[in-house]
Write a protein that binds this DNA or RNA. Structure first.
Lengths: 350, 350
DNA sequence: TTTAGCACTCTCCATGTTAAAGTGCTAATA
DNA sequence: TATTAGCACTTTAACATGGAGAGTGCTAAA
């Protein structure tokens, strides 16, 4: 499907003004209005011919005979890729974001704030995935006895992420015994990556012939339980969903409901956001491009953010396909950069 | 305002069938329909007279001249308090709930499940506050060094709730020093209630003349930071909000938006749920009774749940004022009891 | 290739009509 | 005195009607 015929400068210029016009007015754009607002000196009749071509190419679409034209997802795509003139943020806008993302010890708080800022500033929904490190390293592990054979396992990864899980043991251990087990594990595995630790533990458990005393065996078995399921729960923070209720495109209740259910289930959103992890810079899904019916009249503008030059998450904005891309794109772009900056380890002052 | 005149048996009977009728049909109920459906042998004309009285008392209300009558919040209130015949759940319904709340180590998971069950079973929104203990006792505390003077404080309360916080110290401590501090604190404060610990720490810090070495002072100072802000974040789990989108009463977008914003902000909901903590058994807020405009056309049916015979939380259902109270009430009631059972410490098998 | 002109289509809005539902009032009835 | 029948009146909902406005597609002329 190599369909790029007849797309001369003029048609593109017309498509551009059509999209701009539609984005700002929200009404199908007719040939008269285009004739006036494009810089080209053309009569409405000529423009109608061009529109006919654009429609044939699937770039625009007419809701009914006597309405103007509306851009399709494909039309938006062409617009965003080749026609858009991005409006960089001014100082105040940048300051607003920078201010909101001032340093904070708590990673979760910063992420939350970033999402909130995105939604405030764009008046749409803001979304930020929690930062996920490729190599999660084990920092420290600790066991506390609960009732009977239940034990509370607490472990810290990546300097400051605390996880906990309740595990079951074969016999009842005293606090001292558990302390000993933790000491043993800390001495061996501390500092190693979680995947490595998991592997090593499985190995240990297979080679029982190795000279290990019962205490060490118990410790390894507990560690096995603690780390067994993937601790890498992907998650994201979504704010300003209610902003979406004000868009006429989403006024249909069943549509809206599906959208909010998708937000609640998180799965599809995570999957979509994951796709953006690899891409560098701002990435955009327009309408049906996402592949999820729920987002048919929505667009998603995202950018990845990083810590230590390593991409660890994605942030973005969800809104109706008809959004002011020229403004939203820089907002997402800048927020991603500022979030990266805010999350990066502070330069160590001596 | 002692307004209980003319409320004879017959008027009450009519009000009852009116409310039942309106709940099941969703349409204003006229005198003809009431004449047929009430057991009383009365002509529509007579019923019109009675309706006129009920309207004067503020129990019913006419949307316009030639529509039937609709119950007001006050009407619903009278209905719920004195006229309602509750339909107890049958075995299958109870089993469904019981099954869903099977024992699980993780408190958060059970609470989540309870909320989900409530919303599934009622097709409205389910809400459960996280269990909050009156006396939170300190179980264990632990410090881990981060970069520079930052320290990760981890502490466990109530046998299995893990909290963590980053604190700042005056100088850089080694892991060993921190371990020592934690040991000291554990030895003194472990087992005491958090409020007691907070008090004791403030006392310690004031009486510096007391013979304490520097290490002890450091430990106390760190503990002070760790426990300083109230760790009692009240929170709740809300599920099935999207169910509410299907009710015509909430079809108005701005209304719906306000409602969902209230859900997101949590404050007003928490406040409302807190009011239900004291009450025993099922409690109901109908429409404007809640005092929050957002809930004007919603009702909230709640019940508290307990652990060790002590009320620790509230659970309930949010839906339109026009809901099947006779079925919703037992659902909430039973779920609260089952949740209590699921959360109570298992009997220790020897 | 572009444009003017024109018939045509579709939506929107205001208007009007009718049927159905239900009320309030009055006067008759038990 | 409480109840009921009867009737005039009101309101809504659903449907038809009929311009006005906007915009199109097509054709033929420039």
């Amino acid at each position: 499907m190599t369909n790029k015929p007849k797309l001369n400068e003029r048609s593109l210029q017309l498509l551009k003004t059509l999209v701009e016009r539609y984005i700002s007015e929200g009404q199908p754009v007719g040939s008269r209005s285009l004739a006036k607002n494009s810089q080209l000196q053309l009569s409405p009749a000529t423009i109608r011919n061009v529109m006919s071509d654009l429609e044939e190419l699937g770039l625009v679409h007419s809701p009914h005979t006597s309405a103007g034209r509306v851009p399709t997802a494909k039309g938006y795509r062409l617009f965003v890729d080749s026609l858009l003139t991005v409006k960089p943020l001014n100082i105040e806008e940048i300051n607003l974001l920078q201010h909101g993302l001032e340093n904070d010890d708590d990673e979760a708080k910063i992420v939350d704030k970033a999402s909130r800022l995105l939604s405030e500033v764009t008046q749409m929904a803001g979304v930020v995935t929690l930062p996920r490190r490729e190599l999660v390293s084990l920092r420290h592990i600790e066991f506390l006895p609960l009732s009977n054979t239940r034990v509370l396992a607490i472990f810290v990864t990546n300097e400051q992420e605390v996880h906990n899980k309740i595990i079951h043991t074969s016999k009842q251990f005293s606090a001292a015994e558990l302390q000993q087990a933790a000491n043993y594990l800390n001495s061996i595995y501390s500092g190693q990556s979680l995947t490595d630790v998991r592997q090593a533990i499985v190995m240990e458990m297979q080679q029982t012939q190795k000279q290990m005393n019962q205490a060490m065996l118990d410790a390894v078995s507990m560690a096995h339980q603690t780390f067994e399921d993937d601790q890498g729960k992907e998650d994201y923070v979504l704010t300003g969903e209610t902003n979406l209720m004000d868009f006429s495109e989403l006024a249909d209740m069943s549509r809206l409901r599906q959208l909010f259910e998708a937000f609640g289930q998180k799965r599809s959103i995570i999957h979509l956001l994951d796709k953006c992890l690899e891409a560098d810079g701002v990435q955009i899904f327009i309408g049906e491009e996402s592949g999820y019916d729920v987002f048919d009249c929505c667009s998603l503008v995202t950018s990845s953010y990083s810590v230590n030059d390593q991409v660890v998450g994605v942030l973005g904005v969800i809104g109706p396909t008809r959004m002011a891309y020229e403004k939203i794109i820089p907002y997402v772009d800048v927020t991603a950069k500022l979030l990266s900056a805010a999350l990066n380890p502070k330069s160590v002052t001596p």
